[in-house]
Computed example of a mutant assay.
Amino acid sequence: MEIKKVTLIGLGAMGVFFAPKLKEYLGNENFRVLADGERKERLQTKGVTVNGINYKFNFMTPDIKEDAADLIIMAVKDTGLSQAILDIRNQVGPQTQILCVMNGIDSEEKIAEVYGWEHVMYSYMRVSIVMKDGAADYDPELGKVYFGEAKNTELTDRVKAVQNLFEASNIAYRIEADMIRGMWFKFMCNVGENLTCAMLGIPFGAYRVSDHANAIRLNAMWEVIRIANRLGIDLGEEDIKRQEPAIQRLPFANKPSTLQDLDNGRMTEIEMFAGKVVTLGKELGIETPLNWMFYHGIKVCEEKMQGKFESK
């Protein structure tokens, strides 16, 4: 299996991690961005700027029925996943593989329900990208895409094909031996770090200087650990310790995605984060008070953003 044509849907903070390098390696004909309507027109006209360099890409609309992709990279937000699953339908052929690099722990299941597991691999990203007004800034040395089968003691042909593509296009990657555990590790970090920052309006750098911010972060992570353990996923204290050097390396002023969404007037992915933790906690009989507060608190922030509390 060889990957010659790639379609990306979602040219935001995660999509720009892939787009410039795939365009350079595959060329405009074989690397396409899927979009339509006002978003397509805006991106075609303005492009996106990554670390000071402006890029413009070859766009396709979802209605085009020929020329299926060998690989589809879905880099959308949770709020756009259902539509994206519909939009990629004409890009899926008999051999097409799909990586959905968005946050969360169940997007693969949703995509596989429509297209089948033979087309879907597990994937997630560890990268801090600040994106505003079509411009993204990040340190490429601090980011990776993780992908593979659920277990990767031996690499399947389709995993090797994606590996070969990323090697050739100089995209930083890692193939985890246990992708499910890896996804829950990232979920644990996201829930603790991302949501604490969003609720309090603080950057990642707060975790270097505030014992109080860390107390909230760590206790929220433990709520995820207790749920993961009940589901048979081996997370624990060592995983929290493993994350600490990554926190220290992040630029002090960087903001996580949920806080970026609130700052820019966008709806957040709170359902996928705290909403999922609270739901699983109820199903499993595990208390999740911090995530309950995150969920309702950030919902209030969204209501405020929408003007719900302005005097009539």
Rank of each mutant, 00 (worst) to 15 (best):
I180L: 13
E108G: 07
M121K: 12
A177V: 15
E66V: 10
G182W: 02
Q243L: 07
M293S: 12
M188P: 06
E302H: 14
Y207A: 13
A69C: 03
Q163F: 13
Y138F: 13
T156Y: 06
G10R: 15
N164H: 09
D133F: 01
A172H: 07
P94I: 09
V300H: 14
S123E: 02
E269N: 03
R39H: 15
S123D: 00
C100D: 07
A215E: 05
R42N: 06
K304V: 10
Q163G: 14
E167N: 13
K186G: 11
V162G: 09
K110N: 00
F187K: 05
K23R: 09
A274H: 03
K132P: 07
N194E: 02
F185I: 09
P256K: 03
N264C: 15
M305T: 15
G93E: 01
A136Y: 00
K56H: 15
Y295E: 09
L8G: 00
Y146E: 00
S210V: 08
N58W: 04
Y138L: 15
K21P: 08
M267R: 15
M305R: 14
K65Y: 10
G52D: 03
V114I: 12
H296M: 11
G143V: 11
Y124Q: 08
D263W: 06
A213S: 11
Y122A: 04
K23M: 03
L200G: 03
Y146L: 13
M102C: 09
N152C: 04
D106W: 03
Q97W: 11
V191C: 01
N194H: 04
E167K: 11
V16I: 05
M305G: 12
M60I: 15
R208H: 08
C197K: 00
L259P: 02
Y115P: 05
T153P: 11
E237T: 14
R242S: 07
G37Q: 13
D67V: 09
P62W: 03
A246F: 03
I216D: 00
N219P: 02
E244Q: 05
P94V: 04
T96V: 12
K299S: 04
N214M: 13
R266A: 04
A69N: 02
E118S: 13
I175C: 02
H212S: 09
M74T: 09
V6F: 06
K304S: 11
G182H: 01
Y138C: 14
D139N: 08
N170Y: 06
E154C: 03
E141R: 10
Q260A: 14
R89A: 12
G285R: 00
R126L: 14
W222T: 00
V300Y: 14
G37W: 07
G182R: 01
Q248A: 08
E176P: 14
G15K: 00
A220K: 05
K304N: 11
V300D: 15
F273T: 07
L142H: 07
K21S: 12
G15T: 04
F294H: 01
T279H: 14
V127A: 00
R249G: 08
D63G: 15
G232F: 08
Q91K: 12
L250A: 12
V92E: 05
M102T: 07
S311K: 12
D133V: 05
G104K: 12
T258D: 05
I98E: 00
M221Y: 01
R217T: 00
E303A: 10
E271H: 06
I73T: 05
Q91R: 14
D211E: 11
I72Y: 01
G47T: 11
I298F: 02
K276R: 12
